[in-house]
């Protein structure tokens, strides 16, 4: 199963440290030394703020990715528990952007590269779960309120198992009017 990072709106304070963490880890620390105009600032997750919600949204690394199905040039593939974009192959056709129901993909400029007529080259950009980065996704690590978690197959299954246990216990207690079981409490 693919892994994914999940934001919790109850903990998020909308500070966007995750977005900076994302850029720094993908661009490399040299961005603090080079001309500020010579690197691109394209976080792979988006901070969403509505009337009553603040939470970052990013790729869910679907098991049957709609983006991958929609891609006309086979630039999207799955590997190592994640959905990835081969940006060299990508032609920026936006089909994946249209296919993704979460708005997790956007098209971003590539620093220093232009199209033939001099206009900006843009390709698809989305969360890659910090592939190849020691310590895992940067957003998870930098969040000051631990509002982001990396969800793995094991955890997702554990969670379902726990919920089934709780559900069984509470149903049992209700039927037999016993309150010996502690409900365990919600996390």
């Amino acid at each position: 199963m693919n892994y994914f990072v999940k934001g919790n709106p109850d903990l998020c304070i909308g500070c966007r440290t995750c977005m900076i963490g994302c850029v720094v880890v993908h661009e490399g620390k040299h961005i603090f030394e080079i001309d500020p105009d010579s690197y691109t600032f394209h976080p792979k997750l988006h901070m969403v703020k509505t009337a009553r919600l603040s939470v970052p949204v990013q790729c869910k690394h679907c098991e049957n990715p709609a983006c991958m199905a929609a891609c006309g040039v086979n630039a999207i593939y799955q590997e190592d528990h994640r959905v990835l974009i081969h940006t060299e192959t990508c032609i920026g056709c936006k089909a994946c952007m249209d296919a993704c129901p979460f708005g997790a993909i956007d098209m971003v400029t590539v620093a220093g590269v232009r199209q033939k007529d001099g206009s900006e080259k843009k390709v698809a950009n989305k969360c890659d779960l910090c592939q190849g980065v020691a310590g895992g996704p940067a957003c998870v690590r930098v969040c000051p309120t631990q509002a982001l978690t990396l969800v793995t197959e094991e955890e997702l299954e554990d969670l379902a198992k726990r919920k089934r246990m709780e559900s069984a216990r509470s149903t049992f207690c209700e039927v037999y009017h016993c309150d010996e079981f502690s409900y365990g409490g919600r996390e």
């Binding site: 909308g14 500070c15 966007r16 977005m19 900076i20 850029v23 720094v24 961005i31 500020p36 600032f41």
Partner: peptide, 19 residues
């Protein structure tokens, strides 16, 4: 968040300026 006070400090931090 990101730019503190008159941003004499944070305005000179490039990633915060990107934001």
């Amino acid at each position: 968040v990101g730019h503190y006070s008159v941003r004499t400090m944070t305005g000179n931090c490039r990633t915060l300026r990107n934001l």
